[in-house]
Write a protein that binds this DNA or RNA. Sequence first.
DNA 1: ACAAAAGTGTTTGCGTTACACCCATGG
DNA 2: CCATGGGTGTAACGCAAACACTTTTGT
Lengths: 255, 255
Amino acid sequence: MSLMKNLSDKELERGIKDFLEAAPKTYLPGVSIDTVIFSFHNNKLKVLLLRLGDMPYFSLPGGFIKKEENLDDAALRTLQERTGLENIYLEQFYTSGNAIRFNENIVHEKLKTLVNLPDNNWLQQRFISVCYYALVDETKVNPQPGPFTSEFQWVDIKKVPTLLYDHNLIIQKALNRLAADLDQKLVGFNLMNETFTMGELQKLYEAVYQKKLVRTNFQRKMLSLNVLERLEKQYNGKAHKAPYLYRFMEAKCKC
Amino acid sequence: MSLMKNLSDKELERGIKDFLEAAPKTYLPGVSIDTVIFSFHNNKLKVLLLRLGDMPYFSLPGGFIKKEENLDDAALRTLQERTGLENIYLEQFYTSGNAIRFNENIVHEKLKTLVNLPDNNWLQQRFISVCYYALVDETKVNPQPGPFTSEFQWVDIKKVPTLLYDHNLIIQKALNRLAADLDQKLVGFNLMNETFTMGELQKLYEAVYQKKLVRTNFQRKMLSLNVLERLEKQYNGKAHKAPYLYRFMEAKCKC
DNA sequence: ACAAAAGTGTTTGCGTTACACCCATGG
DNA sequence: CCATGGGTGTAACGCAAACACTTTTGT
């Protein structure tokens, strides 16, 4: 599952040192961005998590805001840097700001073992974190490491382990917001391929709502929205009726 | 309408100087809080705006976060300082972070005319603003000035003028969120008196949704929620049937 | 008696649910 | 021909909109 060989401690040290030197004059102090990156692949809703070295906890990808950069632009930039994608669906949904965050000390300890950092360095300040969620096509993502990343992993939303900080809470809030947006803004199509069967679309909705839906009623409801274009049938060699493929009609998108 | 006599320039100068001296060691840099304080009075939905000196624009009340204080706690504290209230319904809904904000320069100019401030003082840094909305009883609020306030005003939501920064956008987002929460969380009762008639409640919903509702259907819908307790009739001396008073049953509150 | 506002009843339409039924495909 | 999954039909239910109707009050 891991998407990147571990960087050597030497490489990590170089990256962290470079970052720490540039950070104070490049980024706003005390404000960070966390992004819940959702994908839907093999009928599973997943989020992209990352890990620093051999630390016992994963965390969300994130970034910082340049001193002359708009907040939303910063969120898009950090996401593009991590995924290599353009035109990503991105939505702000929460800002997290507790003074004490779960297990932040072990991050600082880990950083100190990797790099000989002074106490009270730029990374040890208190951060207010603005949270976004993004919808991407996992197969088109080629994760790029930031300075604090040695391993990426796409994790099934149902199997997310205990994470650093309050990142479990943040993922839960992201999922709640995604469920609401799926209803009201049809954003789910950002997670599907160009064409898809009704069954695949239903699996997405079930993964987000975290409950089973009735197949026949789901089909009628989706078709009644008048945003799906029916294409040719998909013969997949299985011993049953071939399902139609559908495409989302962009003209009717409300995003 | 103004709720405070103007402070003298002398008083303002004293307050601003005290604030600026204490701010760098008291508050997180670069992060502020803006609060849209809603009230409902005389069948009108209002927001509390404030003005510095004789400036041409009003703005939202706000505050800053102490260095060891949780974000939500800071929002509640600044709100309590401004209103004198406890137990306020408060909800975070958005974080605003454009690098350039509408008319921020005239604020700095104004501050400089009031106090002999150096350039690049603490207030002139770029701020990321976390936005909350609050629901209060206007009659119980006794607005207290912060260091940058010489005048408070409750303004009908339909008559909000052009404000400083992006505060008009923030109010619009707050209203949208309030409308959603009114539906799903019944938060509207935080804006009503202990007892109220169905007509008064309807006026609140109409003000938030910004559209007329059908009286008879509204009544049935509210009663069907089973959260209203019917009390005695209210004889108000008008030439028509006396309406019942209702009370919100707190036991059924989901907040 | 009348106007004005409050409260109730009734019809209609629409969307959701549940479930029966038919269709296509490959083994 | 059967198992499997895809697609359609339909009745029942519930909610919300529209509107007619009754009730209460002070002038």
